[in-house]
Amino acid sequence: MKFERRYTQAGRDPYASIEFRKTTSEIRNPDGSIVFQLKDIEVPASWSQVAGDIIAQKYFRKAGVPAKLVKIEENATPSWLWRSKSDEKALEKLSEDDRYGSEMSAKQVFDRLAGTWTYWGWKGGYFTSEEDAQTYFDEMRYMLATQRVAPNSPQWFNTGLHWAYGIDGPGQGHHYVDFETGKLTKSKSAYEHPQPHACFIQSVSDSLVG
């Protein structure tokens, strides 16, 4: 597929024309005591406090995000689209408390969502050229940041954790269609092939997994 730019320019950071602000997101009990608080998070300046609270409280990955990352080279994939994982050597130089933490910027969320979609599209042969893939990546990040598009809820907190940070875990009983074979395949990984779809409860006893 071919993609044309509507909001971004080639070679320019898609966030360059978007103002961001630092804020604090918190939840308080009726007596004023704090239940949840995340200070100095970064969100688009045009977003309401409610929108900032939702992404911080619901969709930021709260643990396991490496402070230092290293790219995983793939010969058939453009270098800007390579997956990342924790840089163990660099992390050893940090204190244990500083090695892993939470996402703190909405840009991290936009990057991992759009990056993963672009990565999957590249692997599946959807893009006519690398330029089209880069265009899609940039345009999607801009549109997410300006609230022109938004995926369903499980995408926000599941998609991209493996691609962006190397976070993984055992499969949760979900399936995916293998793009190479076209066959329905049970996932062995919780996040390489995540469950990004809306929940469809069949009955009160449905576990959403079986």
Score class of each variant (00 low, 15 high):
residue 59 Y to M: 05
residue 88 E to D: 10
residue 138 D to F: 00
residue 92 E to Y: 12
residue 90 A to N: 09
residue 167 I to F: 14
residue 43 V to E: 06
residue 45 A to Q: 10
residue 46 S to T: 15
residue 81 L to I: 07
residue 74 E to C: 01
residue 143 M to L: 11
residue 149 V to Y: 12
residue 55 I to G: 00
residue 166 G to K: 00
residue 125 G to M: 06
residue 131 E to L: 02
residue 68 K to F: 08
residue 95 S to V: 14
residue 148 R to D: 02
residue 46 S to C: 04
residue 102 S to T: 10
residue 126 Y to T: 00
residue 78 P to L: 09
residue 77 T to H: 07
residue 64 G to A: 03
residue 44 P to C: 07
residue 69 L to I: 12
residue 136 Y to E: 02
residue 159 T to I: 05
residue 156 W to C: 01
residue 63 A to V: 08
residue 140 M to A: 01
residue 92 E to K: 13
residue 147 Q to P: 03
residue 42 E to Q: 10
residue 93 K to R: 10
residue 144 L to W: 12
residue 173 G to T: 07
residue 35 V to S: 11
residue 125 G to C: 06
residue 54 I to F: 14
residue 92 E to R: 12
residue 86 S to N: 09
residue 156 W to A: 03
residue 64 G to D: 11
residue 70 V to Y: 01
residue 162 H to N: 13
residue 52 G to W: 06
residue 171 G to Q: 10
residue 66 P to S: 04
residue 117 W to S: 03
residue 67 A to I: 07
residue 104 M to K: 03
residue 73 E to C: 09
residue 114 A to M: 07
residue 110 F to W: 14
residue 63 A to I: 06
residue 76 A to T: 13
residue 68 K to H: 11
residue 71 K to A: 09
residue 71 K to C: 07
residue 154 P to T: 07
residue 106 A to R: 01
residue 168 D to W: 11
residue 33 S to R: 04
residue 50 V to H: 13
residue 46 S to M: 01
residue 165 Y to G: 01
residue 78 P to M: 05
residue 54 I to Q: 13
residue 121 G to Y: 05
residue 109 V to Q: 12
residue 71 K to H: 13
residue 132 D to Q: 04
residue 118 T to N: 10
residue 98 D to C: 02
residue 45 A to C: 10
residue 41 I to P: 01
residue 78 P to C: 15
residue 163 W to M: 02
residue 121 G to R: 00
residue 122 W to I: 00
residue 146 T to E: 02
residue 60 F to S: 00
residue 77 T to Y: 13
residue 157 F to Q: 01
residue 119 Y to W: 15
residue 125 G to V: 03
residue 158 N to A: 12
residue 144 L to M: 05
residue 55 I to D: 08
residue 66 P to D: 01
residue 159 T to N: 08
residue 84 S to H: 14
residue 163 W to Y: 15
residue 63 A to D: 12
residue 105 S to A: 12
residue 54 I to Y: 14
residue 89 K to V: 06
residue 107 K to N: 06
residue 158 N to G: 06
residue 120 W to L: 02
residue 82 W to I: 06
residue 43 V to F: 14
residue 94 L to K: 09
residue 145 A to K: 03
residue 68 K to G: 03
residue 115 G to N: 08
residue 100 Y to G: 07
residue 123 K to M: 10
residue 118 T to I: 02
residue 84 S to M: 05
residue 124 G to T: 08
residue 131 E to S: 08
residue 48 S to K: 05
residue 132 D to G: 08
residue 169 G to F: 15
residue 113 L to Q: 11
residue 53 D to S: 12
residue 46 S to P: 09
residue 152 N to H: 11
residue 94 L to Q: 09
residue 148 R to T: 03
residue 125 G to R: 04
residue 81 L to Y: 09
residue 82 W to C: 05
residue 48 S to T: 15
residue 103 E to Q: 15
residue 140 M to Q: 03
residue 80 W to N: 02
residue 61 R to Q: 14
residue 65 V to P: 00
residue 119 Y to D: 09
residue 126 Y to S: 01
residue 139 E to S: 02
residue 79 S to L: 01
residue 175 H to K: 02
residue 160 G to H: 10
residue 143 M to I: 04
residue 111 D to R: 11
residue 34 I to F: 12
residue 82 W to R: 05
residue 95 S to G: 15
residue 96 E to T: 11
residue 163 W to D: 08
residue 157 F to T: 02
residue 93 K to F: 13
residue 47 W to Q: 03
residue 146 T to P: 10
residue 78 P to E: 12
residue 40 D to F: 12
residue 164 A to K: 03
